[in-house]
């Protein structure tokens, strides 16, 4: 019974709060630019609208075009369920769950890329190619980051790994994970969620042909992924395990807000990178995580 309540609580948090983040980012961007901007709840309205709309399918699309987004959504949600939510803990925690989390994200990526390729469009092929290629570097960075947390805490279970602070390498890890967050969620400077120039996009171009409920599922999944990375970043850097439950929840909330506002500020103040510069930035993110790993390793050895 308690288990079911726990699951429901987590589901509610992830499903209901996630679409807030893009709204906040847009609000920050509007504020920096001196505009009023769309309401914070805009994504909720969009999702509700898309859910009621009909679907236009490409004549080339196989059933995978609709099934892919569903699988990707479940995969992202599954990864989120493994991530502890501060004092609320994770729905499920076992040794090695951190790897399951990383690979669930990979599964989501595979599904998005597959669905994008369904249409036979060159634009979507381009986006899928970019998505899977840049993932090679982000995955290296993520593994380096979780390895550093694992070395730090001596555990391979997320709940234990994320409880203590990241120690000496916290700043490096924060910078690295923040860059990974931007890349994985296709924000500026890697991608521009607002642009309509297909040639320069990654994620947005992959979903060009989606419409109606499948598009709603994709957008909602992307919001969950953003929240997921914000929570991961906050918990990796701050010692939530040492605080009282109420304080931990507050700190977590504040941390997520700071990350979100940070994304908004980055988006307002930076321009999108030229594509040939993207690997350089991702390599930098990887190196930041790698040095965090080395500091964790060295810190423990002494």
């Amino acid at each position: 019974m308690i288990l079911i309540l726990d699951v429901l609580l987590h589901l509610a948090i992830w499903l209901l709060l996630a679409p807030l983040l893009p709204g906040i980012i847009n609000k920050v961007k509007a504020w920096v630019a001196g505009r009023r901007g769309p309401p914070v709840l805009q994504l909720y309205y969009d999702l509700a609208k898309l859910w009621r709309k009909g679907v236009v399918l490409s004549t080339l699309a196989s059933p995978g075009f609709v099934i892919g987004p569903a699988v990707g959504w479940i995969a992202v949600l599954g990864a989120a369920m493994l991530l502890p939510l501060g004092p609320a803990g994770a729905v499920l925690s076992f040794r090695g769950d951190v790897l399951l989390m990383v690979y669930l994200l990979a599964l989501a990526r595979f599904c998005t890329a597959w669905a994008a390729m369904e249409t036979g469009s060159a634009f979507e092929g381009m986006g899928a190619a970019r998505e899977v290629s840049y993932a090679v570097l982000t995955e290296a960075a993520i593994i380096a980051a979780v390895l550093s947390l694992s070395v730090q805490s001596g555990s391979t279970s997320l709940v234990a790994m994320l409880a203590p602070a990241a120690g000496a390498g916290a700043m490096l890890l924060a910078a690295g994970l923040f860059t990974v967050l931007l890349a994985e969620n296709c924000r500026v400077p890697f991608d521009d969620p607002n642009t309509h120039l297909e040639l320069t996009m990654i994620h947005e171009v992959m979903v060009l042909d989606h419409s109606g409920p499948p598009l709603a599922v994709i957008l909602h999944g992307a919001a969950i992924k953003l929240l997921f990375f914000a929570v991961l970043l906050t918990e990796a850097v701050l010692p939530l395990g040492k605080l009282s439950p109420a304080a931990a929840a507050g700190v977590l909330l504040a941390g997520v807000m700071v990350v979100t506002v940070g994304v908004g500020l980055v988006e307002s103040l930076l321009a999108r990178l030229a594509f040939r510069r993207v690997p350089l930035l991702l390599t930098t993110a990887f190196l930041l995580c790698l040095f965090a790993l080395l500091m964790a390793w060295k810190g423990g050895a002494e």
Partner: peptide, 13 residues
């Protein structure tokens, strides 16, 4: 740039 960065990082380690 990426190779030089990797060279530098490898060298530092």
């Amino acid at each position: 740039f990426v190779p030089s960065l990797l060279l530098g990082a490898g060298g530092t380690i």
